[in-house]
Design a protein around this nucleic acid. Structure first.
Lengths: 114, 114
DNA sequence: TGTCTGACATAGACAATCTATGCTACTCGC
DNA sequence: GCGAGTAGCATAGATTGTCTATGTCAGACA
């Protein structure tokens, strides 16, 4: 069953996907496909969400991109993390974890005597 | 360290807080304070977020409210879950869990040989 | 009477995703 | 070599929900 990507997490997912690819830079479609497939098709990354996000991250300096060619010789922009991008990934991971734990505390309150 | 409440989750947190209070209806300030304290002050529920959310949920029929008096004799609106609200809470919990797992799958990919 | 404060409420700003659409350039068929 | 189909990139506008800022009302207390 499909779910929307919560606001603010798309950047995190893209950063993590690029970090997971290690040295190999990915182009937009590859990033989107990776997120969709790893999430078990729960998330669908629309192009109208993906490219603005990549633009934002280019401006922030978190990623850098070079034009290249796909296996079947099409134009594509290959992105990779910068050092600042790795730092941002760390920050975003910590932030997401705080949010996740705070929500968990409310959803599963530790039982306590009246 | 404070974090913003992700879009779409405030309703869930309110529903869960009301459900946790069982029979005792809560007014707005109590709901906000409960969310803030249980989250360890990670979340701060602004009034400008809280009341519109409560209005939405009243319109949806997920909660009902009656005017009453606080312990120190102030006007306050006490909210409690409706049957539809309990069903919505179940749906929202399942949805949140799917999202959480999908994100986890991307953040912590199961290691796999090349 | 006047100030302070708890509690409810609304308007407008803002941010990020989604829907819809368009562009460019390569491939392939004829 | 020319037109149709399509991969990949990109942008505009709508939508949604939270936050900031502000306002109102009524009770407590000096």
């Amino acid at each position: 069953m499909r779910e929307d990507i919560p606001q603010g997490t798309l950047d995190l997912l893209i950063l993590r996907t690029l970090a997971g690819a290690s040295d190999r830079p990915l182009h937009g479609f590859e990033i989107a496909n990776a997120i969709e497939s790893v999430s078990g098709r729960v998330f669908v990354v629309e192009e109208g969400s993906l490219y603005p996000a990549l633009q934002r991250m280019l401006v922030q300096g978190w990623i850098a991109g070079e034009w290249g060619r796909t296996a079947d010789n099409r134009r594509a922009r290959y992105y990779h993390l910068t050092a600042a991008g790795r730092r941002q990934l760390e920050r975003a991971l910590k932030s997401y974890d705080r949010v996740r734990q705070a929500i968990a505390a409310i959803l599963n309150p530790s039982p306590r005597g009246t």
